[in-house]
Amino acid sequence: MNLILLHPDEVKNNRTVLTDARAKHIRKVLKAAPGKSLRVGVVNGPLGHGVVERIDSEDVELVCSFEKSLPARPKVDLLLAMPRPKVLKRLWAQFAALGVGKIVLLRAGKVERCYFDSHVIEPDFYVNLLLEGLQQARCTHLPEVQIEPLFKPYIEDRFANDFSEHWKLLADPSGKKRIRDFQCPDGAQRTVLAVGPEGGWTDYELEMLRGKGFALLGMGDRILRTDTAVVGLLSLLHEWAE
């Protein structure tokens, strides 16, 4: 835990009292004593420092000071064909740690309908994993999550509103261009990366997505699992943007 992440309603008059796993981490891992300064941040808010004012076996009280400016929101969004639930479980924290602003989980043709009945897409499950990723990466921006169980209605009716100012990249083994071959178009404020299921996008889905302005992006001849492809592509995109 590289950042003690606080919810806005936990901070009153620049003070907070923690009694949960964060307090345990401060006591057991950081071995903090009164006067110790710790990195803190507010979910979707500023970064700052919290000085330990009181610590005991039950709770930890911090006096906080925060930066005036907010950290930049990640400029990469993700349109992801719903992976197997056990794969998605591994990915939630990575989405936040690597820096994704918005995640749209979409049902593609080669995605089992039952995946959308899984508890891993319930906010009570995934929010804690997203927070874990933010604390690892020292970031405060909680990714927005949107569930879309029908491909065609979403792409036809709502996709344009969600990603109107985006540069659009479509990951597929048929893509001949690598990320280094692209230049972000003028006027694009953000990037949306579309990653298909392990069985691949169907020809119909590729046609629809390309009709919405997506450019094909390849990573070579190797066929990758969803979690490997997502982590690799997000890392490449952020490195390229820098």
Rank of each mutant, 00 (worst) to 15 (best):
D9R: 00
E10M: 04
V11M: 01
V11C: 01
N13T: 02
N13R: 07
D20A: 03
A21R: 05
R22M: 11
K24N: 12
K24H: 15
K36T: 15
L38R: 10
V40K: 04
G45P: 07
G50W: 14
V52R: 03
E53T: 06
S57V: 02
V60F: 04
V60I: 03
L62D: 04
F66A: 01
L70I: 08
A72E: 13
V76N: 00
L79Y: 04
L80G: 05
K86L: 01
K86F: 10
A93F: 09
A93E: 11
G99R: 03
G101W: 05
G101I: 12
I103K: 10
L105C: 09
L105H: 08
R107A: 14
A108I: 07
G109T: 08
Y115T: 11
V120G: 10
D124S: 12
L130Y: 00
L134W: 10
Q135L: 02
C139Q: 12
V145L: 12
V145K: 11
I147K: 11
I147A: 12
F151K: 07
F151N: 09
I155V: 15
R158V: 03
A160M: 12
N161D: 15
N161Q: 13
D162Y: 09
E165N: 13
E165L: 11
E165K: 14
W167A: 12
L169V: 05
L170K: 10
D172F: 10
G175A: 10
G175P: 10
G175Q: 06
R180S: 13
D181V: 08
D186P: 11
A188M: 09
A188T: 07
Q189D: 13
V192N: 00
V192D: 00
V195L: 05
V195M: 01
G199W: 15
G200H: 03
T202L: 07
Y204V: 09
L206D: 09
E207C: 06
E207Y: 07
M208S: 07
L209C: 11
F214R: 08
A215Q: 13
M219W: 07
G220Q: 01
T226G: 13
D227N: 10
T228K: 00
T228S: 13
V231T: 12
L233P: 01
L236E: 14
L237Y: 05
W240S: 07
W240T: 07
